[in-house]
Design a protein around this nucleic acid. Sequence first.
DNA 1: ACAGCAGTTCGACCTTTATCGAACTGCTGT
DNA 2: ACAGCAGTTCGATAAAGGTCGAACTGCTGT
Lengths: 102, 102
Amino acid sequence: MSKVKIVTHPQVQDLELTKVLHALSDPVRLELVRMLAAQRDLPCSALCLGRPKSSMSHHFKTMINAGLLRVDVAGNVHLNNLRLDDLESRFPGLMAAVLEPR
Amino acid sequence: MSKVKIVTHPQVQDLELTKVLHALSDPVRLELVRMLAAQRDLPCSALCLGRPKSSMSHHFKTMINAGLLRVDVAGNVHLNNLRLDDLESRFPGLMAAVLEPR
DNA sequence: ACAGCAGTTCGACCTTTATCGAACTGCTGT
DNA sequence: ACAGCAGTTCGATAAAGGTCGAACTGCTGT
């Protein structure tokens, strides 16, 4: 019997600005966003950078719930990607503005 | 003897993106931002809308510390204004993106 | 001087959030 | 089957944040 890991990503029209802004307002998560903007398909391990996995898992969940992140499960590994297109269509210019400083 | 009420607004170069995003991520404060984007020089009384003054004072402080708001004291009344120019020069496009949805 | 108004401060309360170790789940290669 | 790896869940803890009433400060008009 196979168990499917269900990760629920909110739909584009359900993204809430306050949730997105809150997800972006933590320094750790903002760093993740910048790393993911620079490189696609990063696994959790590449994003942890020495921080405890359980702390990171918490941040991933926050970002997924806010609609910032999409996770693709590839066997053992979770590949993380920003939902840049979705965010752009819902909140035009937002991610560009957040990513620009540096 | 006169006592001067000192309100310290952070300088442009000291604005921090995470603080700004956090200040924007609360529904009440986001509403204040939208009201202030539509109309300048609003006093606290015009922004409270039935909510307790002490709650509002807390939000104003958060917004001032983040650099979102500038307060001009005019006698009895505090005139609030978004620091749109400062925010634009520090985080180009951010406020436009936040204000656009609706 | 004084009443009244605008807004802040204080203190209490409760909820949310960040952090982390330990235990757990599920996949992979052998 | 099993060891090992990737990541999640759980539970505890501590800190931050939102809400509000009550008391306070400072200005204004009379």
